[in-house]
Amino acid sequence: MELFANQVLAGIATGAIYACMALAVVMIYQAIDHLNFAQGEMAMFSTFMSWQMMQWGVPYWGAFILTVILSFAGGILIERLLFKPLAKAPVLTNVAGFIALFAIVNSVAGLIWDFTIKQYPTPFGSSPFLGSQLISTHQAGMVGVTLLLLAGLYFFFQFTRIGLAMRAAASLPESARLVGINTSWMIALGWGMASAIGAIAGMLIAPVVFLEPNMMGGVLIYGFASAVLGGLSSPLGAVIGGFLVGVFENLAGTYIPGVGNELKLPIALALIITVLVVKPAGLFGRPIVKRV
């Protein structure tokens, strides 16, 4: 029983990573109705920027805030320059665009900062949290930041006019234009916010997985999986999805013989697909009802 409790706790600790990334995924999905395959790489690039600032002597929180702002602007810039011209192109062409962006960002980061692993600091310290060896103060801090972000997003979407406008633009662009919303800018704003949230996720994840250009590959897949599990339309669902995936993964690694580290991911994904087959809109997503 103690083993079980410990594994659940450890699962929650890794789950915080996924939850954080899943929030960024939900954000972009709300804005553009797609999963951005380059999102992890964008987050990695942001994290490197903050690392560079700290190397230049900027204190942690200064670098943190500057990076979030720069990432926000960068996300908008990428949308305006690269993806706005593709707005009328077929969906699959856009997906190819994400793949191209992935290749570019990954390669440029590798050239600037090379592929060696770098230490990344944490503002929360890394001593055991409340005396538990399984969860560190950093991981606890991550859970805290994720929940704060979630609350912030909830407030933004439910209680601000611009949040309402973004939701409208995402769900029915034509109707949104007919009430006077500039849908094109709502998409750019979505990119900016997703990029900023991704940056926060990256900076929180980096102390755990270490900083290098390929650090986000695995994390993004878990982020997708968590977001899809929770329901892509629900930030709360994404966060819960993240924790669930973290716990699943740990329990599968512990209790299913022969699974080990290698098969953790496929098993977690298989489980998610099983959930989706039963509940196609995810655990907390709004089912899409179509009138014919």
Binding site: A89, T93, A96, A100, L101, F102, N106, S107
Partner: peptide, 21 residues
């Protein structure tokens, strides 16, 4: 060093010029 980036740029060029391939 930048082969990934060059690949990405070429792919972008293709999808801008001929989004339907």
């Amino acid at each position: 060093g930048l082969s990934g980036a060059v690949f990405g740029v070429l792919l972008f060029l293709v999808i801008y010029l001929v989004p339907h391939g």
